[in-house]
Design a protein around this nucleic acid. Structure first.
Lengths: 139, 139
DNA sequence: GAAACATGTGTTATAATATTACATAAGTCA
DNA sequence: TGACTTATGTAATATTATAACACATGTTTC
């Protein structure tokens, strides 16, 4: 669906800093949260974040979570990023599982075929309570 | 996943107006676009739109498209809204196909099982070019 | 009907997210 | 070097969404 298959990309300083922040966060992070984190490194405007994110996403090193307006580092060493990725999000502890297997791409292919669309981008996000949180929250 | 199974709900005036606008639009509409449409009917503030939308979505009469920050009327007479709905969106003509069959719910169940999540909400959105637009755009 | 409660409304202000526009700098390649 | 593309800095602004408060309407219970 996308090209990608990145072997060795040289990230710019800004891109590296944003990616590092995302990785350290280990959670979905909003653009403005990233900005605050990076102010000590000289970042001053949201655009610096958004521009870096755009690149990282194109390279498959980061993903955008549409339902959260947030971003997360790709959890695969370097996501082959067929575009066929699903995110499973715990609404309590904010843990995100990034799933990227044949069941996802098969499902998407089948959906595209049925609806006669030439697909270019997908977003699959499942919200709920993860195993741990589900056990605790017996409200 | 949701309750729903709405047989006959009495919508308030605001809710009816918003739903009518959504239906007339026949396309994804942003909250502020709806507000503009409804100013002649006395709407003045975004909150009036957002509050109506919240109800309509709870009732399964409208859906939110996360990747567009937009809303659309449910295309099923009254969506049983198992929550298992997928949206296929043409980025050119903005047509949206709302798919709601077993393949969707099976896929989501399987994903929830694999990731051990107790799912409460899902969002599946596939972007691309629809059959018609795909034929034209031979750039 | 009156008291108590939940739900819907109107309105103002503000928060959170994202982009436009323009000037400058740095990397790439003929 | 010159031409070109890509990245950057910065300010301003656009777009989307919510908080807070006052008031009204509806429903249930007694």
């Amino acid at each position: 669906m996308k090209k990608s298959v990145v072997t060795k990309v040289k990230l710019t300083r800004n891109q590296s800093l944003v990616l590092d922040s995302l990785i350290k966060a280990g959670q979905p992070s909003g653009a403005y949260a990233l900005l605050d984190t990076l102010r000590p490194h000289g970042f001053k405007a949201p655009l610096q974040i958004y521009r870096a994110l755009e690149q990282l996403i194109d390279l498959g090193l980061a993903h955008r979570l549409e339902s959260l307006n947030a971003f997360i580092a790709c959890s695969h060493v370097s996501c082959e990023s067929s575009g066929a990725t699903a995110f499973v999000i715990c609404d309590k502890c904010e843990t995100v599982q990034e799933i990227c297997d044949e069941s996802i791409s098969n499902f998407l292919s089948s959906l595209a075929r049925k609806t006669k669309i030439r697909a270019s981008k997908s977003s699959i996000e499942l919200h709920g309570l993860c195993n741990g949180c589900s056990a605790v929250s017996h409200s």
